[in-house]
């Protein structure tokens, strides 16, 4: 290094640790790791999918129209989030809020429907302790539900940040990562809908 290779600006920060690009890359890595967690839960569900232990099976327990409505809520929430994403790119706070608000409410509706489903199963004596099949069912659906709950908290925080801070670079980057998270949960749910409900009931 004979020549001095300093940057033009007075604040040198060429390798931005904590930069938006790094955070997004790191978030992809986290999603990969979380997918492995779900992969294990899917594998567990496959292993225990027929272990009814003399108890009720999916046909007696699940209502496909109900779960389909749940699915619609979550998928719509994800679609509406797209409005927030494009609003963030266009730097329009109103569009961001117009996306975040409905996405939040739809997600909340999903959680309520899922909680109600769980509640009815447990009250009906078909809680997670009934059989290995129900343990696996409650665990994979519940783990996804907890993820959605954290997504909702994240979304509430972001609505507050958008309103109080405006669309700064950091806020926009967080919105992008929240979007990645939200769509990721959608994809996992499609897997759950297909393998936990559809294949089992049909």
């Amino acid at each position: 290094m004979n020549t001095i290779t300093g940057p033009a600006s007075s604040t040198e920060k060429p390798f931005n640790y904590d930069s938006a690009a790094n955070r997004e890359f790191g978030f992809w890595l986290y999603i990969m790791s979380d997918l492995v967690l779900f992969a294990v839960l899917f594998a567990t569900f496959v292993v225990f999918g027929r272990a009814y232990a003399g108890g009720p099976g999916p046909r007696q327990l699940f209502s496909l129209p109900y779960v389909f409505a749940e699915t619609l809520l979550l998928v719509l929430s994800s679609a509406v989030y797209g409005i927030a994403s494009s609003g963030s790119r266009a730097n329009r706070i109103s569009a961001v809020m117009a996306g975040l608000g409905p996405a939040f409410l739809l997600g909340l509706g999903f959680i309520f429907m899922e909680a109600r489903e769980f509640y009815q199963l447990i009250v009906g004596g078909n809680g997670p302790a009934r059989s290995a099949f129900l343990s696996a069912y409650f665990t994979i659906v519940g783990t996804h539900g907890v993820h959605v709950l954290f997504g909702l908290i994240f979304m509430a925080v972001m609505m507050g940040q958008v309103l109080s801070k405006g669309l700064t670079a950091m806020v926009a980057s967080r919105l992008k990562r929240l979007g990645m998270f939200w769509h990721f949960l959608d994809i996992v749910w499609i897997g759950i809908f297909s393998f936990v409900y559809l294949v089992q009931v049909a």
Binding site: F48, Y52, A53, A129, S131, A132, S135
Partner: peptide
Amino acid sequence: MHFFSNDLG
């Protein structure tokens, strides 16, 4: 729950 127990599947 009954993932690794000896009973109920």
